[in-house]
Each structure stands twice: as C-alpha cells, then as structure tokens.
Amino acid sequence: MAVRGSIPKTMKALVAYSKDDYRLELEYPTPECGPDDIIIKTEACGVCAGDLKCKHGAAMFWGDDVQPSWVKPPFIPGHEFFGRIVQMGENVTGYELGDRITADQIVPCGKCRFCKDGHYWMCQPHDMLGYQYYNNGGMAEYVRYPKTCVISRVPDEMSLEQAALIEPYGCSKHAVDRANISNEDVVVISGAGTLGLGMITYARMKNPKLLIVLDMQQNRLDKAKEFGADLVFNPGECDIDKEIKALTDGYGCDIYIEATGNPASVIQGLTIIRKLGTFVEFSVFGKETTADWSIIGDRKELNILGSHLSPYAYPFVIENMLKGNLKTDGVVSHIFKIEEWEKAFDYATGKYGDFKVAFQFD
C-alpha cells in the first residue's frame, strides 16, 4: 500500500476506557492510514458539553436499562477539531500534504437511505468522530479521517480561536435554519453558551423583529448583547412569561430555540411561545425531560422541531467568520495542553465564566 507522508508510531492521547476511566496516554498507537484515509496532525480541539456529559456517564452515551451503549471504548474523545494533513492513502485525491482541514462530526456510512437521499447527518448507523474506537476524536496528536468524512478546508488566515468554533457554530446555524426566521418574528433563544452565542450571531443576520436571549449568568447575557441580542433576561430574576407577553401584546414569542439542555428551559419555552409557534430543540440532556403534551397539541398546535449536528454548514460558517458577520471574539477563553485535560474539563463546565475551552497541540 502506497502512503504519502509519515507520522510517529505513538502519540499523546486522552483515552476513554469506560465512563469512570479516562486516561492520558503518552505513547498511544497513532492511527493507521488506509488507502482511502487522511491522517491529520491536530492543531486544536474544543471541549463540548457532550464531551462532559459523556465523561459524567450520561445514559444516552453509555446506555441504561432502556437503551444500549452508543459509545464503543476505548475511544479518544473530541469532535471540535482541525489540523493539517500529514499522511494520505493512495486513493485520496484533491488534497495535498500540509492542507489545513476539518470534518463534520458525523462519519456517514454512505449506504443507508439517509445518506443516499442527502440527509447524511442522520445516517442510520450514526457513527461519530470522538465516540467509537474506530472513529477516534481530536483529543490526540493525530486523527484519522475515513473515506466518507465530510471534509472542509480551513483557510490558513483563520485563527485558532475561530477554527475551534467551526463545529459548534455549524450546529448553531442548523438550529436557526430549522426555525425559518423571518423579519416579522419575535425570537427567543434560551441559553447563551457557545452554541447559543453561535445561534445569536447567526440569527442576527436573519434580521428578526426582536431577538431576545435568556440565560442565568450575567456574563453570558452581556456577551449575548454584544453578539446581537435586542433584549436579554435572567429567568431567575424576573417573570419571563410576563416579560415576553408584555412585548407581544399577550401572545407570546413566535419562535423559541432551546439551547441549555435544562428541562426547566423546555417547560419555559412551552409557556412563553404563542399558539402555532415554532419550538426548536437542540440540546443534549443529562436527564429525562417531562412536558405537558396537551400544550403542544390541544392548546397551542405547536411546530416542534429537532435540530441535530451541522449539515452543509461549515463552508458558510468559515466564510462568514472571516468576513466578520459571525462574531467570535472572546468565545474561546482558555487554551490548554492535553496534559491539563482534567483542568480543561473543569473549566469547560463554565463555572469560572468560560464559554469555550480548547486543547492546542504543538
């Protein structure tokens, strides 16, 4: 097999052997390059809320009495990453060693009905980078991109801080696109973490009638205003239903986008949204959420939409970050070495005021 480029036989990597056993390995085997594969040397990798929930043993990852385990250890976490090509298989065309690239989180099979009809992000096997041993993620010095990865080029002039946000902002774009915002809509985005901020700056480009953001932390509300929110509210300090109804002649908001992963935010949204409104749910939840479905059907006839991953979003996100249309200043607040992974995961919780933290590799 002809392989272009060379890499060391071992690398530094954070490896999840079980939900209770994450280890930094200093000499973990580097990925092998097949004839259709690309190997990148990782430049940086963000820490996602999903990475934290997986580390904390959430059932949607590790399974429970109802659902089987989705993750397949031992695996290397991380799906918000990018890097430069250092090795390519003999069948790879269109790329050169040294090219700076990233890829969608999903690794589509290319064979199921969803892949064949263009809905690759809903691929039936649903393997993802950073959760299975055969699709290891970016919390390592080197990563393998299989043949079916959806790859995008990362411009050399793009900063590390911007490039680390391509994946989360891609998810944000998809969620806002699902809402189909018009300039007549009063839009409420619940949650101003990294994903919420990506939604806010993109929703601002849609020019809604009113863009309102909810969060429990003042620093996040301040950043939301900076990124384009017209109004911000802390649900812990005011009656959100009263505030929204006062702004909408008693009807409620037209669109509610839920980006907190907190069950209380779901109930809040069903309360403040108007009849025939649109509710978009993006979050990964750490526990079950219960809602009164009679509100959704009998009382309000709501449009309930899910949002998953970042299909067809990366090129737009990359272009508009560089143009300054999508704001990114201050979102990536701390950069760590992989040896500091425990500290990085701690900071990624947001308890110290961070939005996004990332690992940088030499």
Rank of each mutant, 00 (worst) to 15 (best):
I273D: 07
R178D: 04
Y169W: 07
D346W: 10
E258V: 07
K223S: 05
I106F: 03
D65S: 12
K116G: 02
V3I: 14
A175Q: 00
T148N: 15
M122L: 08
K223C: 03
E342F: 08
H119C: 02
R23F: 07
F279R: 12
M88D: 09
P29H: 13
G46P: 12
Y169T: 04
F233A: 01
Y256P: 07
A203C: 13
K72P: 03
K323Y: 05
Y131R: 11
S6F: 14
V188L: 05
P208E: 09
V317F: 00
P108I: 01
K343C: 06
I273W: 07
I296N: 10
T201M: 03
D64W: 08
A348G: 08
I85G: 11
T201R: 03
M1A: 09
P125D: 07
A44K: 02
V143F: 11
G34A: 10
L160Y: 14
C33L: 11
E157S: 10
C109P: 00
L221M: 07
K111F: 09
L97I: 15
F345I: 09
I151T: 10
V154I: 12
R23P: 11
E339C: 06
L302R: 00
I255P: 07
M11P: 07
A229N: 01
N303L: 14
H174V: 00
G130A: 13
M122W: 03
D185H: 15
C112K: 00
D51Q: 12
V332P: 05
R153L: 09
P31C: 08
I166N: 05
E157P: 05
G236S: 08
Q360L: 09
H308I: 01
S6D: 13
E319G: 08
I39H: 02
L195V: 15
T260M: 03
F359E: 02
Y202H: 03
F82R: 05
G5Y: 07
N180M: 14
D51V: 09
D156Y: 07
A103N: 02
W293N: 08
G130I: 13
A313S: 13
C45I: 04
Y352W: 14
R299I: 14
K206H: 13
K356F: 01
T194V: 10
K275A: 14
V176R: 00
G83S: 06
Q124R: 13
V266K: 01
I101V: 15
M11Y: 08
F75Y: 15
F355A: 11
Q360W: 03
F75R: 04
G118W: 02
I255C: 10
K206T: 12
L322I: 04
A291V: 15
K287L: 10
V188Y: 01
L195K: 02
K116N: 08
I106S: 01
L305F: 06
T102Q: 06
V143G: 13
